[in-house]
Amino acid sequence: MTLVLEAVIFGILTGGVYALMASGLTLIFGVMRIINVGHGALVILGAYLSFALFKSAHIDPFLSLVATMPAMFLIGVVLQVVFVRPLKDNREALSVLVTYALALGIEGLLGFIFSNNLVQLNAWYETSSFAVFDFHIAYVYVFGFGLCLAILAAMFVILYRTDFGAAIRATMLNRTAAQLIGVNVDRVSALAFGIGVSTAAAGGVVFGLTNAFNPGSHYDLISRLLTIIVLGGLGSLRGAVIGAVLMLIVEDVAAVVISPVWANFVFFVILVVVLVVRPQGLYGIRVRERI
């Protein structure tokens, strides 16, 4: 029973990390209706930026976010303007190819600069832990979950308490209608892309503290993130959070109760069941588009 309780707790804590990474991905889809296949690579880029600051200036990984999040925001805006905005026809399909190409480019660049050896972010809270019942919880998971809550709270405030957030939500609901009422959808898209990418920096720090990574680590990551946002509902922030936590709890409990071999399978069975009952995901919205 203790093992199951441990698995649930760790599922919640690590689910928060994935929620942070998935939130940016679902935000980008919600605003621009594109699947940013390069999001995993951007998470890894964020991890490497923190790694570089740690190695060169001994800056704590969490503190490095003060620099890496704004940097990644700017990178996101530039990527959107240069590579995504010019896509006019077949936008949804072409964006998959373009963002995949970006992912490969980021991977190659990181491999050239850092080599392909596995690295990991280090800090005192990575292995230090505190006792809960008769097991221990590492501080890194608690700090990561706290960071996730803080950033997600900030995103909710931006989306629901600011005019800019209203513009984002309007664009997510109906891009054409938002344009008609005077929303600069191109500017909104660029800034939303930048916000999405900046959350990848935060996710990258926690990912890098809890996993060894190299430039090729984005393949596994993007497949999990896409699964999360499909389960939660494309474009839904709340869905991304719930989907991430649910996925990690199911996997961790299945690994403990059944076997690690079946962990992923159990999750995908649940995903299929949810999509059969609710094709739009847990919190997605069914939208009918006139052709």
């Binding site: 990690l248 403990v256 690690p260």
Partner: peptide, 20 residues
């Protein structure tokens, strides 16, 4: 005794079982 997939990325649940 447990066998885990080569593709495993999250070793925490497995480590917990070894420890337990």
């Amino acid at each position: 005794y447990k066998v885990y997939p080569v593709e495993t990325t999250d070793y925490t649940p497995l480590a917990q079982q070894v420890i337990a």
